[in-house]
Amino acid sequence: MMKTLKTLLVVAMTCMVVFFAGCGGDDGPGNARLRILHASPDAPNVDVYVDNGLVLANVPYPTASGYLTISAGTHAIKINAAGTQTTVINVSPPLSKDGAYTAIAANFVASIEPLLATDDTSAPPSGQIRLRVIHAAPDAGAVDILVNDQIVLSNVPFGTISSYLTVPGGTYDLKVNATGTAITAIHTSVTAAAGNNYTAVAIGSLKTAATNPLSLKILVDG
């Protein structure tokens, strides 16, 4: 169903990085989970820092990390060009106790920006899945999202993080069309196992079609 994720180099952490689970006592603020998706189609590999500690190194497009467990609260998240001190994203989002989040490095490198999605990791109803769409393809324009040729989201602009749709598990035909047209930019089939929540991220670019074309990145939430 999903293409194999590229290998992600995860830097070994020590208890000196006190925000990671297991490095502190039991009296802290609780934990949150955070994963990173490199979705800037013309950007180089990146390094990811949390509170100035390197947590992911040399991450290529379009890699998604697993969930990192960090203490709940506000943390400084920086994304640098790999191996440099050049910071392209520097944000400090508040992360709630027991919350799960996906941070996306989106847009072209000249205008790179963060998208932060709150992930639903609770179990869907029996026999069902939850599915949402994130539009992170910078030059695709507004799009319609079709499931089995039925429009489920219309006129979706870049940067949109949809709500979750609850549908039965199974195999679905997904299309991303230019809004109001039958021009299909992305077309794929997805088999979604009941009991899971999924995020479909529209990534890639018309400008980088030869190397990083428009496509859907399917993530399992939780």
Rank of each mutant, 00 (worst) to 15 (best):
Met2Pro: 12
Met2Leu: 10
Met2Gln: 13
Leu5Val: 15
Lys6Leu: 11
Thr7Cys: 01
Val11Asn: 05
Thr14Ile: 14
Val17Ile: 13
Val18Ser: 07
Phe19Asp: 14
Phe20Cys: 01
Ala21Ile: 09
Cys23Asn: 07
Cys23Thr: 03
Pro29Glu: 00
Gly30Glu: 03
Leu34Ser: 10
His38Asp: 06
Asp42Trp: 03
Ala43His: 11
Ala43Gln: 08
Pro44Val: 02
Tyr49Asn: 04
Leu54Trp: 01
Leu54Gln: 11
Val55Asn: 08
Val55Phe: 04
Leu56Ala: 10
Asn58Leu: 07
Pro60Trp: 07
Pro60Arg: 12
Tyr61Val: 04
Pro62Asp: 10
Thr63Ile: 10
Gly66Asp: 14
Tyr67Pro: 07
Thr69Trp: 08
Ala72Asp: 09
Gly73Val: 01
His75Arg: 14
His75Gln: 12
His75Glu: 08
Ala76Pro: 09
Ala76Met: 12
Ile77Tyr: 03
Ala81Phe: 09
Thr86Pro: 05
Val88Glu: 08
Ile89Lys: 15
Pro93Glu: 14
Pro94Trp: 08
Lys97His: 05
Asp98Leu: 13
Asp98Ala: 15
Gly99Ser: 00
Gly99Ala: 01
Ala100Ser: 13
Tyr101His: 09
Ala105Glu: 04
Ala110Pro: 03
Glu113Gln: 12
Glu113Thr: 09
Pro114Asn: 09
Leu115Asn: 01
Asp120Phe: 14
Thr121Trp: 12
Ser122Lys: 10
Pro124Leu: 06
Pro125Gly: 11
Ser126Leu: 10
Arg132Lys: 13
Ile134Thr: 00
Asp139Val: 02
Ala140Gln: 06
Gly141Val: 06
Asp144Lys: 07
Asp144Gln: 01
Asp144Met: 10
Ile145Arg: 02
Leu146Cys: 05
Asn148Ile: 00
Ile151Arg: 08
Leu153Ser: 10
Val156Glu: 03
Pro157Phe: 01
Gly159Phe: 08
Tyr164Phe: 09
Leu165Glu: 05
Thr166Asn: 02
Thr171Ser: 15
Asp173Tyr: 12
Lys175Gly: 14
Ala178Ile: 14
Gly180Val: 05
Ile183Ala: 13
Ile186Phe: 15
His187Asp: 15
Ala192Arg: 01
Ala193Leu: 06
Ala194Arg: 00
Asn196Arg: 06
Ala200Ser: 13
Val201Gln: 08
Val201Cys: 14
Ala202His: 12
Ala202Cys: 11
Ile203Asn: 11
Leu206Val: 14
Lys207Tyr: 11
Thr208Ser: 10
Leu214His: 14
Ser215Gln: 15
Ser215Phe: 15
Leu216Gly: 12
Leu219Pro: 10
Val220Cys: 05
Val220Phe: 08
Val220Asp: 05
Asp221Ala: 02
Asp221Cys: 04
Gly222Ser: 14
